[in-house]
Structures are given as C-alpha cells and as structure tokens.
Simulated scan of single mutants.
Amino acid sequence: MVRQIVLDTETTGLDPASGDRVIEVAAIELYNFMPTGQTFHVLIDPERDIPEDATRIHGFTAEMLRGKPIFAGIAHELIAFLRDSEIIAHNAPFDFGFLDAEFLRCGHPKLDRARMVDSLDIAKRRYPGMPNSLDALCRRLGVDNSMRTSHNALLDVKLLAEVFLQLMGGKQPGLDLAAAPIRVAGPALVLEDAAPAARIPRPILPSEAELAVHAAFVEKKLKDALWLQPPFAAPAAEAG
C-alpha cells in the first residue's frame, strides 16, 4: 500500500534564512490515493514577532500564538507522523525549506528531497499557461473552497488533498467496490468473495442474404481461397 502525506505550513514570512519561522503545520494521511481520516495539526509559537503583511494572509498574530508549543516541542511528533512517506505540498520547495530550517534548528536532519511531490508542478504540467494557485485549481476541478477566506494550513491541506486526488485521477463517485469486502494481505489489497461479472453470450448470426453476398465477394476477389480447398471446404452434396 502506498502511503502519502499531504502537508501545508503557515509562516511568519517568506524566507527562513532571514529568520522567518513556521507557525502552523497541518497534514493528512493518504493510502493508495484515499484519505484515511488520520490528520496532524498544530499551532506553533514562532518565538518572534509576526509582520502585519503575514497576518493579513493567514490571520495569526504573535499574541494569538503565545503559549503554544515551540517547534522543538512538536518535532518528534511531526516526524513520527510523516514517517518515510512521500510528502505532497503545493509549491513544495517552500514548505520543505521552512521545515528543513526548523528541523536543523532543533537537531534533526533535513527532509529527503526524494520524498517531495510538488502538486503545483503537477498542475503546471497538466494546465500549462493557466493559473494554478490552490484557489484556481479548486474552481477548475469543482472543489468547494467557499469557506476559504484566509490562508489556514488545516483548511488548505484538506482542499489540497481533494485537488491532488483529482489531479492524479483518484477516487471518483460511482467507482466504489462496496459489494466486495476488502482485507489487507501484506502489501496488496485483496477483494474477498468478489464474484466475477456474469457474461452473456451474444452470437452474431448473418442472414442468408449476407452469406450470399459474402460468398460472391470471396469468389470474385479471392482466387483459390484456402478455406474453400480440401480438406477445409464442406463436401459437396451427393446426388439423389
């Protein structure tokens, strides 16, 4: 079974190298492109001020986050949730860059870039030259984002999970295998008691007129047709 994590962060700014910090992390677990209901969400005290420009985007102030855990206090829990799964994010290098800076700050290794799946890059390849922000993709793919009035990691990651599944051709209505119970057997999914669909034979029987037209065509166009020669040809009827 393929395990993936859809992830989003909110931050105090745009550049971890200049001292900007992570203030929110949200993640959703997928197995075989299906949400499992397992989520991770935490608000974080950035231990610094939050510029007004950033507050206008995500709505958080330093006062609102005072007393929340610092990143070092949630790092082990986040690492445990991520495990070694692929990590899907929209503009993933941004989120990876911030998480790397936070992990290094508290003594943990950076995230392996081989785990990174950038849904923005996928969208750009699928819709070249078109707007591919999360809002634009929600509108294009029919994902309801009417409640999204600000950048909030928990809401954004739920929307991104739906968008990602649409981009990857994931679960579609009407394709459930509800009649076939599923059990896990090692890495594979096994359908139990799934009876094969009944097949009804529908022979195509040509009419006498069609047979006559075909015979005339063969006689005119195909000289010495193999199936008209012995032993394939039907024996001539004996005279009475």
Rank of each mutant, 00 (worst) to 15 (best):
P173K: 01
F96T: 00
W227L: 05
V184W: 07
F94T: 01
P16E: 04
F103A: 01
A136Q: 10
G129R: 02
H76T: 11
G142H: 03
A123V: 08
A236Q: 12
D95Y: 06
R105G: 11
Q4P: 07
H76P: 07
A180I: 13
L222N: 14
E102Q: 13
F96K: 00
L175Y: 11
L177A: 11
L159E: 05
A215D: 11
L111S: 07
S133N: 08
A188V: 06
R113A: 09
L160K: 11
L120V: 02
P35A: 01
R56L: 13
M147H: 12
V190W: 07
P46G: 05
H214F: 15
P128D: 09
Q38C: 03
H151L: 01
A80Q: 14
A26Q: 08
V6W: 05
S18L: 05
A92F: 00
I204P: 02
L177M: 10
R140D: 03
A194E: 10
L159F: 13
A27W: 06
T11E: 04
D45C: 07
H76K: 14
H58N: 14
N132I: 00
T149H: 13
I200G: 06
D121K: 14
L134E: 07
I44R: 10
P173Y: 03
A161T: 15
Y127K: 09
